[in-house]
Amino acid sequence: MKTQEELTEIVRDHFSDMGEIATLYVQVYESSLESLVGGVIFEDGRHYTFVYENEDLVYE
C-alpha cells in the first residue's frame, strides 16, 4: 500500500506533463489510505479537481 506522500507524487507527476503547477492540494478530510482527493492549479490559471484511487486518476 502506498503512503499519501507517494500518491501525491504520482498525481504531481501526471499533472506536470500538462504544464507548470502553481499549487497541488489534498483534501485530507475526503482522502484515505486508498484514495487521494484534491486539486491542482497551474501557473496559467487552469484548475482541476481530482480523485486518485486504485491506480486510476479521474479529474475535471
Rank of each mutant, 00 (worst) to 15 (best):
M1K: 15
M1T: 14
M1S: 13
M1G: 12
K2N: 05
K2W: 07
K2Y: 06
K2R: 11
T3E: 05
T3H: 05
T3V: 04
Q4Y: 12
Q4W: 08
Q4H: 05
Q4T: 05
Q4L: 12
Q4N: 05
Q4S: 06
E5I: 06
E5A: 14
E5C: 07
E5H: 09
E5P: 04
E5D: 08
E6F: 12
E6A: 07
E6S: 05
E6R: 07
E6K: 06
E6V: 10
E6C: 06
E6W: 07
L7Y: 04
L7R: 03
L7E: 01
L7N: 03
L7A: 04
T8A: 10
T8C: 06
T8P: 02
T8K: 12
T8N: 05
T8G: 05
T8D: 04
E9Y: 08
E9L: 14
E9C: 12
E9P: 02
I10R: 11
I10A: 12
V11S: 01
V11G: 01
R12C: 05
R12W: 12
R12V: 07
R12L: 09
D13Y: 15
D13R: 15
D13I: 12
H14A: 13
H14G: 05
F15D: 00
F15V: 03
F15S: 01
F15L: 09
F15K: 01
S16M: 12
S16Q: 09
S16G: 10
D17Y: 13
D17I: 08
D17N: 13
D17K: 14
M18K: 10
M18T: 03
M18E: 04
M18R: 06
M18G: 03
G19E: 01
G19Q: 02
G19F: 03
G19R: 01
E20M: 13
E20H: 12
E20W: 08
E20I: 14
E20C: 07
E20P: 15
I21R: 01
I21W: 02
I21N: 03
I21H: 02
A22M: 12
A22I: 08
A22E: 10
A22N: 09
A22S: 10
A22W: 13
T23W: 06
T23I: 07
T23A: 12
T23N: 11
T23Y: 09
T23V: 09
T23E: 08
L24S: 02
L24G: 00
L24A: 02
L24P: 00
L24W: 05
L24E: 01
Y25K: 03
Y25R: 03
Y25A: 03
Y25G: 02
V26K: 02
V26W: 06
Q27K: 15
Q27Y: 07
Q27T: 14
Q27A: 11
Q27N: 14
V28A: 10
V28S: 15
V28K: 14
V28I: 10
V28L: 14
Y29M: 06
Y29G: 07
Y29Q: 11
Y29T: 08
Y29I: 05
E30I: 11
E30V: 10
E30D: 14
E30P: 05
S31L: 11
S31R: 04
S31C: 09
S31V: 11
S31Q: 11
S31K: 08
S31E: 12
S32C: 07
S32K: 11
S32T: 12
S32W: 08
L33Q: 10
L33A: 14
L33N: 13
L33P: 13
E34S: 15
E34P: 12
E34D: 09
E34T: 10
S35I: 09
S35Q: 14
L36Y: 04
L36F: 13
L36I: 11
L36A: 04
L36Q: 02
L36V: 07
V37W: 10
V37E: 08
V37R: 13
V37D: 03
G38I: 03
G38N: 00
G38V: 03
G38C: 01
G38E: 00
G38Y: 02
G38K: 00
G39T: 10
G39P: 00
G39M: 06
G39K: 11
G39I: 06
V40T: 03
V40W: 00
V40F: 02
V40Y: 01
I41V: 06
I41F: 12
I41D: 03
I41E: 05
I41T: 08
I41W: 15
F42D: 00
F42H: 01
F42S: 00
F42L: 09
F42Y: 11
F42P: 00
F42K: 00
E43H: 14
E43R: 14
E43C: 10
E43L: 11
E43D: 12
E43A: 15
D44M: 01
D44I: 01
D44T: 03
D44L: 01
D44F: 01
D44P: 01
G45H: 05
G45T: 04
G45E: 04
G45C: 05
G45D: 04
R46H: 07
R46N: 06
R46L: 05
R46S: 12
R46V: 06
R46P: 03
H47M: 12
H47F: 09
H47S: 11
H47I: 14
Y48E: 01
Y48W: 07
Y48C: 03
T49Q: 06
T49E: 04
T49V: 09
T49L: 15
T49D: 04
F50W: 07
F50T: 00
F50E: 00
F50S: 00
V51A: 09
V51Q: 09
V51K: 15
V51W: 06
V51F: 10
Y52F: 13
Y52Q: 02
Y52M: 07
Y52E: 00
Y52N: 01
E53K: 15
E53N: 09
E53G: 11
E53V: 14
E53M: 14
E53C: 09
E53S: 14
E53P: 01
N54A: 08
N54L: 07
N54E: 07
N54P: 05
E55P: 07
E55Y: 10
E55L: 11
E55C: 07
D56Y: 14
L57T: 04
L57P: 01
L57D: 00
L57Q: 01
L57V: 09
L57K: 02
V58F: 08
V58I: 12
V58H: 13
V58E: 08
V58D: 09
V58P: 01
Y59K: 05
Y59N: 02
Y59W: 10
Y59A: 06
Y59M: 15
E60M: 15
E60T: 11
E60L: 15
E60F: 08
E60D: 09
E60R: 14
